[in-house]
Amino acid sequence: MKPAIPFARVKTPLFFLAALAIATLAVFALSLLGKTTYSPDVWTRFPTAETPLAKLDAAAKIFWGERLPKTVLAALAGAALALAGLTMQTLFRNDLATPYTLGIASGASFGATLSIQFSGALAAIGLPLALFGVPQVVWGSFGGAALAVGLVLGLSRRAGTPERVLLAGVATGFFFSSLVLCQQYLANPTKAFAAIRWTTGGVDLCEPGYLATTGGVLAVSALYLYRRSRELDALTLGDERAKSLGVEVDRLRVALFLLSSALVAVVVAFCGPIGFVGLTVPHVARLCVGGETRRLIPATLVGGALFLAVCYTFSRIVLFPSVLPVGVVTSLLGGPFFLWILLRAPRR
């Protein structure tokens, strides 16, 4: 009998390594593309202590200073959003649960804009701009995301059914989006301009700390989820079944809740809310590797990274010299692709 799941027979560690290699190569290759496409030997002219970025030739300058960091940020953000989607789908036991549909991304945007709005005031009362090396805007957006997840979890505990969870999420999302818009109307023009970044997603601003923070949160989350993958599998079968298999369900839920908030928060703080990744990627990953969390995690990470890196590359090439916001491209490419996947999958 033909196995229904395409990659069912590939062993997990091998699968993990292969996935990582593919993602790395793809990010490198995508960074070569552009108005002028560079030959791969630009790889050898990397900035060092003796030859800093400023002293390199134009191609190397753009490759190492612009394209590569931004493509890496896009890849990390894509992986983080996809992992957040997977976590939320497990947490809410609903395939439609994503950072967007549950209003988490809007909550994070709200927190981020609020923290920018009051950055002066916060500095005045002695709150540092960065805590534990993590910029203040990340803490703000983490707070907003946590508030939104808490709200949706609280509402869904009372309301129960998956449909109601989604309704609660959509309502929460609209509520926070309106708050963000209110702030923009009330804010002074320069700050409002800065805040616009948190309503349309993009990776055009990439400061050195961004990659490390995103990568750090992503690595911690992915490792934690991987370690708990068997318990997550049990959780997808229902709270009762997980409990009777010995899983401390309530504790696990709190951890998943914090992780998904953190993942969404870093991405929103640096790139703004980028839709569709959290919905499409885990779904496609499930079609490719099956429902086992241990295998879904690497597949989701690489899928998310590739998807957003490709979307970003497309977004900076298609309307050159202007850059389309990557959030527009994800929906533009992702929407039809997702429909195609849905329609060709056998009916359950």
């Binding site: 068997r230 599998d233 049990a234 997808t236 079968l237 298999l245 429902g291 086992e292």
Partner: peptide, 18 residues
């Protein structure tokens, strides 16, 4: 709920979790 992508054997293996 959705357990569709689990094979029967995989579900039984999950019982060894404790």
């Amino acid at each position: 709920g959705s357990f569709s992508s689990f094979t029967a054997r995989r579900l039984v293996e999950l019982s060894r979790l404790p």
